[in-house]
């Protein structure tokens, strides 16, 4: 990359401050590009990896309607991955990288994916909790970034958020049926909440450097890539979902959880942030299994991409004209 002149940098920051949107081919400081690549490729690959735990439940979904809806939902996750990876790939193009490199970074462990997708989803109750609460958490952080200074990311997020409403209601419908169902179904649901709770708190990332030693949130806020802190997002999540969970007669595995009227915020037991670090660095209960599933699917299909990448058809022989 070129060395930034003071003048270019100043102009760039003026554009950010004026609320202008930066486009893929515009001049941008290297650390802005790096921050975007880190944020968006992680977001994109998390969607792709996020398809895996839910995919386990696609054929097993208990009715024809549920089978169709969860298939459509997991398809959307892949579709969101497509949108986001396209945005990341355009940012990487000047660095001589493409999707193949993103995949290889994932396989080598260089590119991380979201903590929740390292976790087990052993029951149908988990399929409901993922759609209701994990997606609920994702909606909160994604809508926050809709106003991002990077134009292509904002446009991808707009498409993604439009589909999240379906996901949220799909999830609500599953958990509602379980909550109003038989005793066994309620137990199934309660067990899922219990096992997912710490992961949900971790979803938004640590409150500050104090918990994990580093965070990118300050720089991302200066560049207007995001507008709220991790903790603000977590508080929004708690406000939105805790009363709803309680209203269904379900419990949350944290006896200290309460809304403090004086401070105007939720008090909760901190999840184990060391555990968080272990999980996102590939040492979660399902990290290696899901990664190897992804590696295998990429490798077993190598011949297809090679065949069409080398073929004369690549120049575009049209048969649908």
């Amino acid at each position: 990359m070129t060395v930034a002149s003071e003048h270019q940098l100043e102009q760039f920051m003026d554009r950010i401050d004026r609320g202008e949107k930066i486009e893929a081919n515009d001049w941008m400081p290297d650390d802005y590009r790096e921050a975007l690549i880190r944020l968006i490729s992680m977001h994109g690959i998390s969607e792709i990896m996020g398809a895996l735990p839910e995919k386990e439940w696609v054929p097993k979904a208990p009715t024809l309607h549920r089978k169709l809806a969860i298939m459509a939902k997991v398809q959307d996750e892949m579709g969101h991955g497509q949108l986001l990876l396209r945005v990341a790939e355009d940012l990487m193009e000047p660095l001589g990288k493409n999707r193949d490199d993103i995949m290889k970074d994932l396989f080598s462990g260089k590119l991380k994916f979201h903590n929740v997708f390292h976790m087990e989803a052993p029951t149908w109750g988990d399929a409901g909790i993922i759609a209701w609460l994990v997606d609920g958490a994702a909606i909160i952080s994604q809508t926050m970034m809709l106003g991002t200074s990077y134009g292509p990311y904002g446009r991808a997020l707009k498409r993604i958020c439009a589909e999240e409403v379906f996901h949220a209601q799909h999830g609500e419908s599953i958990i509602m049926a379980l909550a109003e169902g038989t005793k066994e179904q309620r137990v199934l649901l309660q067990d899922s909440i219990n096992s997912w709770w710490p992961s949900l708190l971790m979803f938004f990332g640590p409150k500050s450097k104090a918990e994990t030693g580093h965070t990118n949130q300050d720089k991302n806020m200066r560049y207007k890539l995001r507008t709220k802190t991790n903790e603000q997002l977590r508080q929004e999540f708690l406000t939105k979902y805790v009363p709803r969970i309680w209203s269904l007669g379900l419990t949350i595995p944290d006896e200290s959880l309460r809304f403090d009227e004086g401070d105007g915020e939720w008090k909760y037991a901190q999840p184990d942030w060391n555990e968080f670090k272990r999980i996102v660095t590939g040492h979660g209960p399902k990290s290696q299994e899901r990664l190897s599933l992804r590696v295998r699917s990429y490798e077993m299909n190598n011949w297809v991409r090679e065949a069409l990448g080398k073929s004369a058809l690549a120049s575009g022989v049209g048969s649908h004209e």
Binding site: Q82, L83, R86, D90, R305, L308, L313, A314, V317
Partner: peptide, 13 residues
């Protein structure tokens, strides 16, 4: 609308 990756026009379509 958006962009996608494909090896050729027919598959893109």
């Amino acid at each position: 609308q958006f962009s996608l990756l494909a090896p050729n026009r027919d598959l893109a379509f």
